[in-house]
Amino acid sequence: MVIGIPDVGLVGPIATSFMVKNLKLELVGYLDSNVLPPILLFHNSEPLMPLRFYSNDKNLSLFYSEIALPPEHLYSFSEYLLDFAIKRGAERIIMLGGIAVPNRINIQKPKVYIAAIKEEDRKFFSERNFPLLKEGFMGGAYASLLKQCYKKDFSGIALLAESHLNYPDPGAAASALTMLASILNFKIDIKPLLEQEEEIRVKLRELMKRTIESMKTSGKEYEFTVPAMYA
């Protein structure tokens, strides 16, 4: 199951929303809870839940959130989502996200780091020269999901593209998608995404603002912290 949740650079929602449109995935369900804010979305006059599941007939499922998740409920959310994925027969979860780099403006093609829980996954990526995230804290929704994977010994993989911290970053989303396509062996043309880059940056400003607020209390600040084990 591929997962896109608002986080650094909005890489997850930009990438998964593009996948839904371009791979013609079908809406198959939603996730709702009394801890989520009272928000409902309308598109072409039809109501849509903000947290939705999509799928195709080729063994690909996707979870996509239109809203920043409340930091205080990330634990229960992650626990529920992972249990659900396991019950539905998912082999692994792959999260699409960003990792903030201060010199992003100078980077033409963002590099994608892979954080993987299971040793066999790390070996798989290492043998293919995919760059693994080797050191440092991870915080936020994806860290919470990876913790659940660790506890349940389940395959959890986060693809983290170098990204702007505070601005929507379609270029980073394109890099994460390219990496995902090469891992899952499917074809996706990212050219339309790059062509719409500026339009996306303008239109996702509000979601970016809400996400920054949510990130402030979700452990993201730890990503700038050097672990005590290095002292």
Partner: peptide, 23 residues
């Protein structure tokens, strides 16, 4: 008009203001 996203970074001698102005 639209309000752009921005961030202020603080170094020893200067403030660096980044403003996102797509389009």
């Amino acid at each position: 008009c639209l309000t752009p996203l921005y961030e202020i970074r603080d170094s020893e001698d200067e403030l660096i203001l980044y403003v996102d102005l797509p389009k």
